[in-house]
Write a protein that binds this DNA or RNA. Structure first.
Lengths: 346, 346
DNA sequence: GTGAAAGCGCTAACAG
DNA sequence: CTGTTAGCGCTTTCAC
């Protein structure tokens, strides 16, 4: 197979007439070894171009200094920012990240988690797919004693931690804002109710409506997914129903983008004919026209919390108490759903 | 440390009164083992919740079935799509991916590659940072005999493969199109010339200008980076110079988005006052207003080619001939730079 | 301060 | 078809 015979600890030990233990210790800065020896060893190591073998190291030490991550998607602003934050935090804590992508496919999710377990990651950070229903794999993770932290799309499993944004509160703020502007006919493109973010964002919508004593029109709560397609179809359904709302609260920004496309096709205008706001910021919300107001999720905090919590769990495996952390959201107001909208304060 | 004592091959071998070799072989579908035994073993394995230890497996077999990937960024449409494609292709070829993110920082890039080498990946796919100048680490990779494939942002290193899009041809097409519409005063926000995509896209721009016997105004070729910030500052520089072009060719879509923001601030209008087109599609190009025409890079083909080429190299380590593959681009025409633009055919 | 011995969990060669 | 014997390259006791 043309195996490239790597340089090993032994090679450099022989070169220096010391034992490989000495080299190993020196490389890890073990206090056993004298300064001069350590220096000499490090010099030789870099001269000979030695690269330690993590496989061997991990096998021997029974730990990997690695956190496995499973996300449903990455070509999506929320997830790519989240992942960037995860990598960043891990990097600063000297942990490696092994990222896998389930592509919203729960079978693939299971396979990836098995791989990660097989790689003997020290901990796991998971954001589940839209179709994940079966908990079995997560029970397996728990049984193997691997710290597990869910992010954003979470499952309620005892012994695991979770980091979520305050979906319900964020939704509430958004719909509240629309109501204060004077809108009464509010529709919600709601994703899927089985997914926790779908349910929780719906609840926030519901809270706001209740607080204003407004009934919820079931025809105006439309499920169908979290992507552009869902937004497009959702709006078309509203449009064709002959009973249009004044305002749409979209469960994600891709759903909102889908609505933009559909509205354009329908010949209507945002925000005059139909106003909109969504949950989730992205790099483009400010560049689309009209610029899109939204509920912002601080992905940097999410990622940081997820990694730090997982590391905490790893390092204090016997005493760690799982935590459910909720990160607050904030409203970002732009051209849609603003005081300049047609219905404002009427 | 509260180590979770995992179940090993031996455990299940003892349970079944066979040797661990038998179990190992059965699990890998080795033809040595009879069907019944294999079935029995697999049953026991899943009953006992055994997860093979890849560390041990890889150490022993001297291969990892893993490809290391280094990208400069992921919260960017081009890279996140590329990565998705890489994961997808690897998945279908039964390879694992270990992704690392250099954050456009070349020191971090080096560290990540060292980690990947230490993990004994079978091959490496790299898209370099904007500041990568030093080749040393890549020479090290070569020296260790690890197949190396560059994607998009490439380095010319003998013995390595590269997958790029036809930057020059794509740029040429874009600028050509603008010229055909009647534009003559063409500016180019050009990224950095040291980065190959910067240089190549500039060349395409140059080709088109030359073909139409138009001189290139050096004041209208502005370097400064590949992000929104660069686009914003680039446009402001043009705007404040008092000598505005009619058309801007932006080296990336974030640069174009930066221009959109700056144009809005300046009080001008796209495409009437200034028209624009960019290299690189994204999920938002069609949703911004006016929708943004661009040169599309087929990220799915890029990722697929990169992975397949790398695997090919891994499997035929002695005979493999490095390849430089160039993937063609296509023009996507939307509202900017269209026949409806002010200058069209005048 | 340094090193010898043992073993992490698995696979590869070879015997039976 | 099944098992025995040797490692893979490193870290971990525990002597010296």
């Amino acid at each position: 197979m043309g195996r490239s015979s790597h340089i090993t600890l032994d090679d450099i030990a022989k070169q220096l007439n010391v034992s490989k233990v000495t080299v190993s210790k020196a490389l890890r800065g073990h206090p056993d070894i004298s300064k001069e020896t350590t220096l000499l060893i490090k010099k030789t190591v870099s001269e000979m171009g030695y690269t330690p073998n993590y496989m061997a190291r991990n096998l021997s030490s029974q730990r990997s200094n690695t956190i496995g991550v499973v996300v449903p998607k990455i070509a999506h602003f929320f997830f790519s920012s989240l992942i960037e934050s995860i990598y960043d935090t891990a990097f600063h804590n000297n942990y490696e990240i092994i990222l896998t992508v389930s592509q919203e496919n729960s079978e693939r999710e299971v396979k990836h988690i098995e791989s990660l377990l097989a790689m003997r990651v020290d901990g796991l950070i998971v954001s589940i797919t839209q179709q994940t229903r079966d908990h079995a794999i997560f029970e397996k993770v728990k049984k193997q004693g691997i710290p597990l932290t869910f992010v954003d799309r979470v499952l309620d499993i005892p012994g695991t931690s979770s980091i979520t944004v305050d979906d319900r509160g964020g939704s509430f703020m958004a719909v509240e804002h629309a109501l204060r502007l004077g809108y009464r006919k509010i529709a919600h493109l709601a994703g899927y109710p089985e997914i926790n973010i779908g349910l929780r964002r719906y609840r926030g919508f519901e809270d706001a409506m209740k607080m204003h004593d407004l009934p919820i029109n079931p025809d105006w709560v439309i499920y169908g997914g979290f992507d552009e397609e869902a937004g497009y179809r959702g709006f078309m359904k509203l449009f064709n129903s002959g009973n249009m709302p004044e305002f749409i609260f979209a469960v994600t920004y891709p759903v909102a983008l889908g609505v933009y496309a559909a509205v354009e096709e329908s010949g209507l205008k945002i925000p005059d004919d139909i106003d909109i706001m969504c949950f989730g910021n992205s790099d483009v919300n400010r560049f689309i026209s009209p610029s899109l107001s939204c509920v912002n999720q601080p992905t940097d905090k999410l990622g940081k919390a997820a990694v730090e919590l997982t590391i905490d769990h790893i390092k204090n495996i016997d005493t760690f108490e799982p935590q459910q952390i909720e990160i607050p959201t904030e409203l970002i107001l732009r051209q849609t759903c603003s005081v300049n909208s047609k219905h404002a304060y009427n």
